Amino acid sequence: METNFASRKNRILAFLLDYLILTIIIVLPIIFFMMNEKNMESALSFSFFAVWLMIGFILYILKDSIKGASIGKWVIGIGIRDEENLERVPSILRLFLRNLLIIIWPIEFLILAANKDKQRLGDRLAHTVVVKVTEVSVWRKIFAIVSLTLISILLFISTILFTIKNTDAYETAITYIEGSEEIIQEAGGIEGYGFIPSGSVQINNGYGESLFTINIKGKEKDVKVRIYLTKTPKSDWKVQEAHYE
């Protein structure tokens, strides 16, 4: 009986789904960390990055530990099995060894493309194969890809917005706007602010620069304020320029 190996296309698709999921898990906390000015000024920032990246690497290595299938493989309907017994799921140690070689993924993909049994180096090291476990429709694959992509985009945008609005620089900008009689008069009073502010916060060795574009919802008319702030080590943010239209 011929072994029903998972196609290279499905394996690459599962890999991309796993990569997307792990990117969300790893990148979003880093964004939160970087947008906190006190963290970026701390000597522990490098340690945080190193530890969090190591956690992400370990998560990737152990991603197939549940029944030989990661989330991506489960969505696509494929799984890892012992090459001598296709009913047996390899041990966690063998799955660990298999994924360890993903650090040389360009070579792994080349070997996967050339190997007749569709094994990469990690498979050959752990004596495993990837097989089709369940039949999955094309629509399920498309739905999974589109859903994960949209969720990733929404999470990324939400994280950026949340972190920007919680920086000391942004709070200083809002305080300045609410204390500016000129801007308040132009808007006829402030009712609120736009949901999506644009801007950036950059800090290096305690010196910082921030530039925001903040939309004000005024009682008489809406006003767009562009505001530039700076800071020096051990000091608060200060507004240097502010223009509105």
Rank of each mutant, 00 (worst) to 15 (best):
N4Q: 08
N4I: 11
R8L: 13
K9H: 05
A14Y: 02
F15Q: 06
F15M: 07
L16D: 01
L16E: 00
L20H: 04
T23W: 09
P29I: 03
N36T: 10
E37Y: 15
K38S: 14
E41T: 07
A43P: 01
L44N: 05
S47Y: 15
F48L: 02
V51K: 07
W52K: 07
G56S: 10
L59Q: 11
L62G: 00
I66M: 06
G68C: 03
A69T: 01
A69N: 00
I71F: 02
W74S: 11
V75W: 09
G77E: 00
E84S: 14
N85Q: 06
V89S: 07
V89Y: 15
R94S: 15
L95E: 03
L95N: 10
N99T: 02
L101H: 04
I104E: 09
E108H: 07
L110F: 10
L112T: 00
N115L: 07
Q119L: 07
L121D: 01
D123Q: 01
L125M: 15
T134F: 13
V138H: 13
A144R: 01
V146Q: 08
V146M: 11
I151M: 13
I153D: 01
I157H: 03
L161D: 14
I164Q: 08
T167N: 14
T167V: 10
A169R: 06
E171F: 15
E171P: 00
T172E: 11
A173V: 01
E182H: 05
I184M: 13
I184Y: 00
Q185S: 15
A187I: 03
G188H: 11
G188R: 10
G189L: 04
E191G: 14
G199P: 00
V201E: 13
V201M: 09
N204G: 12
N205C: 00
G208I: 02
E209I: 12
L211D: 12
L211P: 02
K217Q: 05
K221S: 07
I227Q: 05
I227V: 05
Y228Q: 08
T230F: 12
T232H: 13
P233I: 00
W237N: 06
E241S: 08
